[in-house]
């Protein structure tokens, strides 16, 4: 059973078909990149996978359960329990420290646990920056905090939206390194990007164009 399966989904805004009868499968433990130019339907697909939007037609199966007809409230629950999100602009709570930002995710999920949050920061190499406010962290550091935040609740799926879009090469490599680590530990990753280098780091790339899947590319160099 696939972890995530989109079956013939369409998203229609008035006359515009943002997604047009798209079907994809992501297996458990897979690392998939979704690419495409702007207007290709990437964001719409991301919203649907991230349980922030529902398709107009079609089914979204998460661990075999169709979530395409769920209410916004239960989508929130599903997102909280199963999905870890990483954003292009990091998005940290500006008045909370790094460790507190990680704990916010725990707070909504179950119980805040500072030790565990510190450990997660340790994994991304920021244990010594735990008490810093976002304004005292570099962009790369902020994104690493966000990676720690995304994995803190052990989600089934990590969904990253242009995670390296605002990072320099060094930090891009650090973040991709972290993804590699997560992948090796068995975490399922979906990375939405327009950067071919980031896409090449994944096992498989799904290319969207005009709301349809234009092609799928298996990265033969993966793991090398």
């Amino acid at each position: 059973m696939a972890l995530l399966e989109l079956k013939n989904i369409s998203k229609i805004y008035g006359d515009l078909k943002a997604l047009d009868n798209v079907s994809i499968r992501v297996e458990k433990g897979e690392w998939v990149a979704i690419m495409g130019p702007s207007g290709s339907g990437k964001s719409t697909m991301m919203n649907i996978i991230g349980c922030m939007d529902k398709p107009t037609m079609g089914e979204v199966l998460l661990s075999g359960v169709d979530i395409s007809k769920e209410t916004a409230r239960s989508l929130t629950d599903i997102r909280r329990d199963k999905i870890g999100l990483i954003f292009q602009q990091f998005h940290m709570v500006t008045y909370l420290t790094a460790v507190e930002n990680v704990m916010v995710s725990q707070y909504y999920h179950s119980m805040p646990d500072e030790e565990e949050a510190l450990e997660a920061l340790g994994r991304v190499g920021l244990r010594d920056r735990a008490r810093h406010l976002p304004s005292q962290l570099s962009g790369g550091e902020q994104q690493r905090v966000c990676v720690a935040r995304a994995l803190i609740n052990h989600p089934e799926l990590i969904l990253a939206d242009e995670p390296t879009g605002n990072l320099d090469e060094t930090n891009e490599n650090i973040v991709l390194g972290l993804f590699r680590q997560l992948h090796n530990e068995g975490t399922t990753l979906i990375v939405v990007t327009h950067d071919p280098e980031v896409a090449e780091a994944a096992q498989r790339t799904i290319v969207l164009e005009h709301g349809r899947v234009a092609r799928e590319v298996i990265n033969e160099n993966f793991g090398k």
Binding site: G50, M52, R73, T76, D77, R79, R80, D81, L85, F87, H91, M92, V93, T94, V104, S105, Y108, H109, R149
Partner: peptide, 12 residues
């Protein structure tokens, strides 16, 4: 943005 983030992180 912060509120959006909190909701994205699963805040009801």
């Amino acid at each position: 943005r912060e509120i959006g983030l909190r909701k994205a992180l699963g805040a009801s």
